[in-house]
Design a protein around this nucleic acid. Structure first.
Length: 180
DNA sequence: CCCTGATTCGC
DNA sequence: GCGAATCAGG
């Protein structure tokens, strides 16, 4: 894949919007997150909202006897305000989020431990983190479970039990949904 | 483990 | 210029 003007523009937009490198890579397609990060640096777009943090010295190699000696100073000028982004992206998703209905009357104390919330936000969710909504979407404390979920499964083991309540709730019908 | 971004350096 | 490999941190 080549970095066409359009792709670069989209990259800039998404990066500024606060998406992670991997998310952008997925969005663009044909590139890895490393490619995205590399490009971001070449474009000097790095450090998008770092008010103040320790310089955290970083060096990949022990710097053996190679020719390099000095460390290129990296002047990071904190200028623009953070401008926090992301809130708007939460709305649409929330509406689609499943309702945690009180279906779990059985305490589900089988063997599954009630997961403690990791306070995952829309930005920290991935394809393998539990997307079970917790709290009131209209309030600040709203978040997602965030537990590790199985590959491709949207919820952790605990919430999957709640989400996928078997229809045969001891009723006479036994339309087993086999197949998958 | 999974994920983040940062950096280096062979290509 | 590009980005895999690697690092450091959460």
């Amino acid at each position: 894949m080549t970095w066409t003007d359009e792709r670069v523009e989209l990259l800039k937009k998404l990066w500024i919007d606060g998406l992670s490198a991997s998310q952008i890579a997925t969005e663009l397609g044909g590139v890895t997150r490393n490619a995205v990060i590399g490009k971001v640096h070449r474009l000097s777009l790095s450090g998008r909202a770092k008010p103040a943090s320790a310089p955290t010295a970083r060096a990949r190699k022990p710097a053996v006897a190679t020719g390099r000696t000095g460390i290129a100073p990296r002047g990071v000028a904190p200028t623009a305000r953070p401008l926090v982004a992301g809130n708007t992206a939460l709305k649409p998703l929330v509406q689609t989020a499943p309702e945690p209905r009180r279906a779990m009357r059985a305490e589900a104390s089988d063997s599954v431990v009630v997961p403690i919330s990791l306070h995952a936000t829309i930005l920290t969710l991935t394809e393998q983190t539990c997307k079970w909504p917790i709290g009131d979407p209209s309030t600040e404390d709203f978040h997602f479970c965030g537990q590790r979920s199985g590959s491709g499964i949207p919820y952790c083991e605990y919430h999957s039990r709640i989400a996928y309540q078997p229809v045969h709730d001891r009723r006479r019908e036994r339309k087993v949904m086999v197949g998958a």
